[in-house]
Each structure stands twice: as C-alpha cells, then as structure tokens.
C-alpha cells in the first residue's frame, strides 16, 4: 500500500544539451542572439551565456535559446490541439478553451462549420445557439489558426469529421506538452484493439474506442451529426457501453500514455503500441505501479 520513492536514474546521451538554471552555455560566435531562457551575466566572459530555466539548448544560427522540458504549451500555427471549453461568450461570439497554455485559447463563431455544413453568414440565431454547438466542459479537437503578437491563440474547427467536439466513448489523458512531438497526423488509429487517439500537441490526449462510423474516416452522415450535436439525454445515454476487452484496452492505452509521461519518453503511436505490447502480462491497473515503471524504463532505454 505504501512504497518508498523509486530512485531510478536514466543515463543521457553523452553530449546532452541539457542545462539547469545558472549553467553556462558556450556561445563562441560574435554577436550571439540571446534567446528565451538565456541571459548574459556581467561576471562572465562575453562568450558565455547562462541558462535561466531548465531545458534543452537549441541553436539556430546565432540564436541560442533554452526550451523548457516541463511547462505549458507554446502554440504554433497548424498545431492540432485538444481543449476543454471553459466559457461560452455569446456577446463576443467566441468560446474560451483551456488548452494547457499560458492563457485560454479563443475559438470564434466564424471559425466553426455551421450545422448542416452550409457556407453562409453567421446570424444572431447562430449566436444564441452557440451552447448547442459546444457547451461548457465539452472536449473539442481544434487547430491553431493564428497566434497573435500578445500570445493569444485563435483556434478553428473547420475540418468536418476531423475536428470538433469529441463525443466518442473515451477518456482524456493530460500529459506534459513536451512529450508529444509535432507530426503530420494527430488523429490516429493506434492499431491496438480498435483504439484510436487524438494526440493534441498541447499535451491533452483523447483516447477513444474507434466505432464503425468513425473508422470510415470522416464519413459521418449529416443526420447522425445533427443528432449528436443536440444536447439531449439520448446523445449521452444512447451510447452503448464498450465491451469488456474494449474497456480493458481503453484503460491500458490510458495508463500506457501516463507511464510514458512519467518516464519522460515521447508519446507517439509507436511508443504507445510498444508499451501496450510489453504490458500484456500486467493488468492495466498495475501499469502505474513503481515495479512496472522500472521495468518499462529499462526496456525503453534499451530500445532507444
């Protein structure tokens, strides 16, 4: 029931560009650009910078920056993110969405596809129906459309069938944003017991049971769309419970993602699948126990 903290250490590749706050960063070029996370101290030589946060040193030409390993999500245009609606602001025609960034993202009414899939101007009726589209606490997947100069992030959900409300049978897993790499596909089928996931670049991962309709890739017919968009009890109660193998697979994938996050490994389709495969002998509930995590870390370190 009680365990002592595990003292596992990971060996890093020898020229690891990792720094702690205060560590010296060698920058021999003249006129080095001091980027985020670095500063020049008056006591140091001109070719030495000091890190102000823990992370990885990145060098682009003369620009030296330190990218934090832990921290909030820093948006880039085109990122697929998973977010939770925190506020519906009808008067300013936008939703506020929590995406684990420094501030909540904004989703404008003009950035969503209207029910029915028609292209038209937004009317006052649409404003009043905003809560029927996305209500508070709803999970959505969206794309970052624009990052303003002050850091405000604008989202859009215009790709029908791909982005929008997440209403499958699934669970949300929150991980550190640094563990999810940007890739071309973020809505992926895991190829494990009919599980699929939306790997939000912001560190929110939506794991769900792939149904027949969604497996056809965006081919959801409009009628079903409309029915699901209505906030009736039927939309929630009508979903059948997943079968027992599906339920166990859902738990296993969720815990695999958390185990990867705890062990500080990058989370991708391949790594999730590998952890699911290695953990076959372990019940899903034991996957976050120190004993399994230690074995997993040894295995991951060996295969990396």
């Amino acid at each position: 029931m009680f365990t002592a903290p595990s003292a596992t250490t990971r060996s890093l590749p020898s020229p690891a560009p990792l720094v702690l706050p205060g560590d010296a960063i060698h920058a021999p070029e003249v006129n080095t650009l001091r980027g985020h996370g670095t500063r020049q101290s008056a006591h140091d030589r001109a070719s030495t910078l000091r890190a102000t946060q823990a992370g990885v040193v990145e060098r682009i030409n003369k620009l030296v920056t330190v990218r934090a390993l832990r921290g909030r999500y820093v948006p880039e245009v085109g990122d697929v993110v998973v977010g939770r609606v925190t506020q519906v602001q009808i008067s300013s025609r936008r939703w506020r969405v929590d995406v684990q960034a420094r501030q909540d993202a904004a989703l404008l009414l003009s950035a969503i596809p209207l029910p029915g899939g028609v292209q038209r101007r937004r009317t006052p009726e649409d404003e009043l129906n905003m809560r029927a589209v996305y209500a508070e606490r709803d999970l959505i997947s969206a794309e970052v459309q624009e990052v303003k100069a002050d850091g405000t992030m604008m989202l859009h959900t215009r790709i029908q069938g791909r982005l929008g409300r997440l209403r499958q049978r699934g669970v949300l897993v929150a991980v550190c944003p640094a563990h999810i790499r940007r890739s071309t596909r973020h809505v992926v089928s895991l190829g494990y017991a009919g599980m699929a996931a939306v790997l939000g670049v912001n560190g929110y991962v939506w794991v769900y049971v792939e149904s027949e309709a969604t497996a056809l890739d965006g081919g959801e017919d409009e009628e079903q769309e409309m029915a699901a968009e209505m906030p009736t009890d039927a939309a929630v109660g009508g979903v059948t419970a997943p079968s027992r193998p599906q339920a166990l697979a859902l738990c296993r994938v969720r815990n695999a993602i958390l185990a990867l996050d705890v062990s500080c490994f990058s989370i991708s389709v391949e790594s999730i699948r590998a952890v699911c495969r290695w953990s076959e002998a372990v019940p899903p509930a034991d996957m976050l126990q120190p004993a399994f995590l230690e074995r997993l870390q040894a295995q991951l370190a060996a295969s990396a």
């Binding site: 999970l139 699934g170 669970v171 979903v239 419970a241 899903p284």
Partner: peptide, 30 residues
C-alpha cells in the same frame, strides 16, 4: 464533459472498472 462522465459510469456499471483500470474497491499505492 457529459461524454466522459457517461463512459466513466458505463465502465463502472457494466464491468466494475474505472478509467485507470482499477476495480471499484482498489486503492492506489501511495
């Protein structure tokens, strides 16, 4: 969200399972 809550209740009612794979009466290690 309502969908997440529905899944949580369904797993518990149909399989006695929680989203983290524990049975209803299992405690976590501290």
């Amino acid at each position: 969200s309502r969908h997440e809550q529905a899944v949580m209740v369904q797993l518990l009612r149909a399989h006695g399972l929680r989203v983290d794979g524990r049975a209803a009466a299992t405690e976590r290690h501290m």
